[in-house]
Computed example of a mutant assay.
Amino acid sequence: MYKKMNKIIIAILVIIISGCADPKTLERMGLVTTIGYDTTEDKNVLVTMVLLQIDPEAAQNSIILSAKSETSKGAKNKADLKSPKKLQSGQLRVALVSEEFAQLGIINLVDTLARDPAISNLTYLAVVEGSTHKLLKQKNAGFSDISQLIYKELDQNIKGEKIPSSTLQEVMQDYYAAGTDPVLPTIRGENGEIIITGMALFKNDKMVSKANPDEAFFLKLVNDRYKTGAIEITIPKGGFGIPESIKAPDQMSVVLDTITSKSDINLLNKDNLQFEMKIKLTTRLLEVNQVMDIKNPVLLKKLEDRLSEKITSEIENLVEKARVAGADPFGFGEIYRKSVRGTNLTASKWHKMYPDSKVNVKVDFEILRTGVVE
């Protein structure tokens, strides 16, 4: 079924491309859909590309090309020498960098991608735990084209509000803003599968820390509005009238969905750099792994209080992790710049001020309705 659909997509793509005014013939085009960048032992750049096979009758839907050079463009030019078709970037959907590459700095690469008029600003960027070359050469039984698997997984998790978005445009915007730093999803390959492991935190253009998937949820909770998000949170089960005789887990796991949120960050003190972060959160209680009477208003209020405390603690820990690493993914610097006139704030100046900042987190949490309880 997948192969049949893939051939239909390729056929449609052929029609679209062949109808363009550009005189290039299909036989001469190698469409790059995903590209990966690794740092080699001799400090060169290893570029690995996944090329879409336009021919619907081709034995494979995609092919892998790689080459290394001192620059990303130089490596791509060398890869051209190995390709029977002229490499084109107009269908690029995902650009990957290894952790080692990200730790050295990504702005030169990001600028290079942004200057290519053929590359969309909506191209996703992500960090690979390990080698991008090895990840792109993985085989998956359900997807003959690894690039489609990576793109679809990033796309659905971003649109499904599991992780923040990190398009080329968004990364460029965050980097060039004086008071905020970029974040990118982190992924790894495992037995042919692609797993999203969290988010990479950057200071300027260098990766300095990582957030796990739960922390990625709270990062998005602060930076954006949720409309349909979901998360599982674990809290102590004491105080909810749960019989001790019942064999049940030691902790209470609560699944929340249909999450809607709004966050607001304000500067309280410009001299001592103190911020207040307010988050209003409403949600539905979907599932609890304990036997408890959620119709009891007293217990429901206690559950709201416990969850509010846990969420507040998780956000405070994430803010502290980012501050210690020197990364500002929340944009506190931008709040400061907009609140204080005449600062002439630069990224360098802000990163010197940021470690001394303090943040008060306040969460207004409410369960609007309940769902299934086990």
Rank of each mutant, 00 (worst) to 15 (best):
N6S: 15
K7E: 15
I10V: 13
D22S: 10
P23H: 10
P23E: 15
L31W: 08
T33S: 09
E41G: 01
V47H: 02
T48E: 05
L52N: 13
Q53E: 15
Q53L: 09
D55G: 09
P56N: 09
S62R: 04
I64W: 06
S69M: 11
S72C: 11
K73Q: 15
G74V: 08
G90E: 03
Q91V: 00
L92P: 00
V94Y: 01
E100P: 01
F101P: 01
A102P: 00
I107W: 03
P117M: 05
S120H: 03
Y124T: 03
Y124Q: 13
E129D: 13
E129H: 08
G130D: 06
S131H: 07
S131G: 08
L135C: 14
A141W: 14
A141D: 14
I146M: 14
Q148Y: 07
I150E: 00
Y151N: 09
K152I: 07
L154N: 04
D155V: 03
N157T: 14
I158N: 13
P164D: 01
Y175H: 08
Y176P: 02
G179M: 06
T180K: 13
D181Q: 03
D181K: 04
G189N: 12
T197R: 03
G198H: 07
A200M: 11
A200K: 10
L201H: 06
D205I: 03
D205A: 00
N212Q: 02
A216P: 11
A216M: 01
F217H: 03
N223P: 07
K227M: 10
I233V: 15
T234D: 12
E244V: 13
S245I: 14
Q251P: 01
S253E: 14
K262R: 15
S263Y: 11
I265F: 03
N266W: 02
L267C: 00
D271L: 05
I279S: 00
T282G: 12
T283G: 12
R284C: 08
L286C: 08
L286Q: 13
V288N: 05
N289P: 08
S308P: 13
I311S: 08
L318M: 15
V319K: 12
G326S: 00
G326E: 02
F332N: 08
W350L: 00
Y354H: 07
V359Y: 10
V363W: 00
L368G: 11
V372M: 04
V373D: 04
E374F: 03
